[in-house]
Design a binder for these strands. Structure first.
Lengths: 220, 220
DNA sequence: CGGTAAATGGAGGGGGCCGTCCACTTACGC
DNA sequence: GCGTAAGTGGACGGCCCCCTCCATTTACCG
């Protein structure tokens, strides 16, 4: 019995090796074939048996969270980088463009992040962190007057979902389509083109607004 | 043996009755649960055996085309109605809004129309007809100067796909999201907000441009 | 009414995916 | 080296879906 019940006993060398092979195979499989790729296919691609896969990752969801944890880290890095940009609109635009390009490159990416995981705590944590960074970027761009005032944080989810629909089928067409969609939407996100809009979709990002003010108090 | 090989012998009364029950059940099932609903579920919903379903519609695709034929007719009606509108931009906007609202109301709708059916000839025919009507509406709105000149017919597919992504999960949130997305995109489709854009996605609608000029020669 | 062919429903074979179990293998500590 | 426990792969039962076959029922026509 390990010292910490929640901490796995250190894996044997070969087990660790296989674990990484599985993660790599899963990453590739999710990227090209989507999230619903058969577990057996991942195992085969990793050169291990199905049992090994299930031993390391008892559920498909646990595998997904593990695989996309580093992608989430990339997202967070993109957000942080944008937060350092003195130009609020450029920061906003850059984040949107980068995340959307990640989306077309990885088919499982969006599905993984738009799925309401009740799963992995650290996943949720990093995600919330990224969302708060986004909220700050949005706030700045609005304050600058370049981002339209009625822009809603949920519009980012809207953008992600729309982009998902566009990049559903893989290929070069999807990339071009995504680029054009993002360009269109970025233009209508500008304050200049602000016309009347229907109310924002209730995507359950409202809590961000409740969280950010305290943080904003310390912001420049 | 029927007189015309391509014409089905007139069905027996009960068969015809069941056929309509199947179509109704399929329509409901596709709308609520999407295109990949099990055939058995449709049969059960229709109150018939699976064999009956397969006898009437040998393949899932044939059922789909049949079910969505009238929806396509609705689309065509929407387009025709818009063609009668003297205000080109309002015509354009109306078509976009109506079709997108049909999309959120029926989950299988988009999937059915975006799938590149090699199937049913009359389906393709009606579809091409609708596409030509759309091309004319787009042409008029551009000529009026309200629709941006670099708008591409493929942008309509782009819109449909984006809207599909947004309205993937059923519910009231999807409706609100779709409405907002459409509003955003319509704004950036206006000529006033025209900024530089990446090239349009190669969605294979180019043939429309080759077809329309002859028709346009007879247009007002 | 009765014969007949159309029509029907449910059973069942085939295939895919899931998740588990178990007999065998292999790395690690001594 | 060697004992042991962690690790492994593949087989297997369960489930769902596809589609076909066939014995039975039912509408239509004379």
């Amino acid at each position: 019995m390990p010292a910490h019940p929640s901490q796995i006993a250190p894996l044997r060398a070969d087990a660790l090796h296989n674990r990484e092979r599985i993660l790599r195979a899963a990453r590739e499989a999710f990227a090209t074939r989507g999230l619903e790729v058969p577990m057996a296919a991942i195992a085969r691609r990793a050169g291990v048996g199905v049992a090994t896969l299930y031993r390391r990752f008892p559920s498909r969801e646990s595998l997904i969270t593990e695989v996309f944890a580093d992608q989430l880290a990339v997202c967070a890095a993109v957000v942080d980088e944008a937060l350092a940009d003195p130009d609020p609109w450029r920061a906003f635009r850059t984040v949107v463009e980068k995340v959307c390009s990640m989306q077309v490159a990885d088919r499982g990416f969006t599905a993984a992040f738009l799925t309401e995981f009740s799963g992995a705590v650290d996943f949720e944590q990093a995600r919330t962190c990224a969302e708060q960074g986004l909220a700050e970027i949005v706030r700045r761009a609005k304050a600058e007057g370049t981002l339209r005032a009625d822009f809603d944080l949920a519009d980012l989810i809207l953008l992600l979902k729309a982009n998902q629909g566009v990049s559903a089928d893989t290929g070069d067409a999807a990339a071009a389509a995504s680029r054009r969609l993002v360009a269109y939407l970025l233009q209508s996100f500008r304050a200049e083109s602000a016309g009347p809009l229907p109310s924002p979709p209730p995507f359950g990002l409202e809590h961000i607004y409740d969280l950010t003010p305290e943080r904003q108090a310390a912001s420049p």
